[in-house]
Design a protein around this nucleic acid. Structure first.
Lengths: 332, 332
DNA sequence: GTGAAAGCGCTAACAC
DNA sequence: GTGTTAGCGCTTTCAC
């Protein structure tokens, strides 16, 4: 029914081998033949069958990606950046979600491998329970963890240097005159949460005054409000600067402080992490640490394509240092 | 290198044909043989090669999806919902982006077809210039337009009934006592923008007072602020209710009105469209029209799978009526 | 219910 | 440079 390479070859008066060569790069084919093949393909409206090519060449030019959810703006930006990278390398992106369920994640990985993806880029959904399936997959094809990393593995990972990001933020607040700090973040249930908390504890030493107030909940706006309310209700003097574990928390803090009559940044400065789209639109606009999603995606793709091509070392861990984005919420 | 069905068959003491049948459903295979095959597959850690199956069976169990961008929260929610639907049907999702470039979109469609996707779900990026490539693709496999529709085609489409949504909103405002209305939206550069504008013009008749103030720009927060400022600067009495073309505009309107000392909803009520994640978190929380993304995705998938299976009519146009979400910004 | 055999459309040896 | 040939791993007739 559909035009095959055989018909193209016949029309061009060459063998299928020559037609194949001409159609894929054309190296090692006499110019006249190359043109004849291309013309024939064009005239017949030939559409190559990538599935047949994949079966024979044992490469699908497809990257498999598994993410916890797509609608989370941080993840969707990463998916978009990875898709762009795949596109640049003329590869397709087979996308699957784990919905934060390690078993679903394991199933998705298996399906993607059955479909013979050339490599995998995974945002693991669970610190411990994602390890086994990820490592099993990584044994079969080049694979890299993106953003989050599972515990106790030396498998490749590309993410942001959370500690360095928090340090940027603390330094910035101290520079702007903060003499006391507090941290409002998430319980260390994933590697990012843990690294940010650890980063804050280390960075706190750079603060000239007290910086040991640490409130831990989850990554939600509600928790940000709750924690800020707790600070307000304590009656103790408020810290000069509040470092938040992410922007959503920071937005909650901003809202609750403002409801409590505290002015930001005049009375208290607030900083977040991630630079979600709404950070710039908040009132006041939120100072934050920007996740360099494009860099992350590019590094992740490079990690797997290097393994694919050169057979580079399979245990590369890349921590990209993020950038501080100063805005009104810390403008003194 | 990898275990093939042939080895499974040998170990189970049956032919590859029987092994194949046992592994895919097991209908028409004696129970004992079925079990032997499954056990052999398990023992050998057999992984089916989906590419080989696809080549032979001429079906990849893969849906191709093309969207303008992924990071737009509205699109990312749609991608997520489509992915879930694909998963339910045990299909994979090959995702590509057009970056709002009709030529890139056409190339992506061709690549997806080369990869033999079983069907296509497309959010076309351009009202006119997306038509040709989409229709060409739709001639080859079941295809449906999602959300946006190109002009002058009878090809399948699934989206929201924008006119009905705006009507909901206008009725709601009038019910809450609005006697005059204004519309702040986008120039009709895509089918949604046009349908919402047309919807407003029709619905305006239900307003007891003047409702002919219409301000058109783009779908941005900045435009929302700009338009609100214009309303404030005109000196004319403000409308009781402002209908916005989307939530982002509405958020801008909210911000500018509040900056101008206008109280929402006491002085002016404001309603948006889409129910983006931040709508509920705004101050005041934004009344809006919720896009039923899950329904849209399910209908889109049903449209293509019906065509795939039964060969249902290839020109189904489904407009899902959206739901009003009343919140504080219209609470009188 | 089962097996033998014929490909799906393409690429990659290998010989010329 | 080019053609011949042999599959890639699977599903699907078609006999039995």
């Amino acid at each position: 029914m559909s035009v095959t390479i055989k018909q193209v070859a016949e029309r061009a008066g060459v063998s299928v081998a020559t037609a194949s060569r001409a159609l894929s790069g054309g190296r090692g084919v006499r110019e006249a033949n190359r043109e004849a093949v291309l013309r024939a393909a064009d005239e017949l409206d030939y559409k190559p069958n990538a599935v047949a090519a994949a079966l024979r060449s044992r490469t699908t030019r497809t990257i498999g990606m598994v993410v916890p959810v797509i609608s989370n703006p941080f993840f969707s930006t990463l998916v978009e950046a990875v898709e762009r990278e795949a596109e640049l390398g003329e590869r397709g992106l087979l996308l699957a979600t784990s919905h934060y369920d390690p078993e679903a994640e394991a199933r998705r990985l298996r399906t993607l491998l059955d479909r013979q993806v050339d490599a995998l880029i995974v945002i693991p959904c669970h610190q411990e329970r994602s390890r086994e399936a990820f490592e099993a997959a990584a044994r079969r094809v080049p694979a890299v963890q993106l953003d989050l990393s599972v515990d106790g593995t030396t498998a490749s990972w590309v993410g942001v240097d959370n500690g360095a990001g928090i340090l940027h933020l603390v330094d910035h607040l101290v520079e702007r005159g903060a003499r006391s700090l507090a941290y409002i973040g998430s319980e260390p249930t994933d590697s990012s949460a843990r690294d940010r908390l650890d980063g804050y504890r280390r960075a706190a030493a750079r603060c000239p005054g007290p910086a040991d107030r640490v409130l831990l909940g989850d990554f939600s706006l509600e928790w940000g409000r709750g924690a800020a309310r707790r600070l307000l209700d304590e009656g103790a003097p408020l810290p000069d600067g509040v470092v938040c574990g992410n922007d959503t928390i920071a937005l909650g803090v901003l809202r609750e402080l403002s409801a409590g009559g505290v002015r930001v940044p005049a009375d208290v400065m607030v900083g977040g992490f991630d630079d979600i789209p709404f950070a710039a639109l908040a009132e006041p606009a939120l100072t934050t640490v920007r996740q360099p999603q494009d860099r992350l995606a590019a590094e992740a793709m490079r990690t797997v394509t290097d393994m694919l091509e050169g057979g580079a070392e399979p245990n590369r861990r890349v921590a990209v240092v993020p950038e501080l984005v100063p805005r009104a919420s810390t403008a003194r």
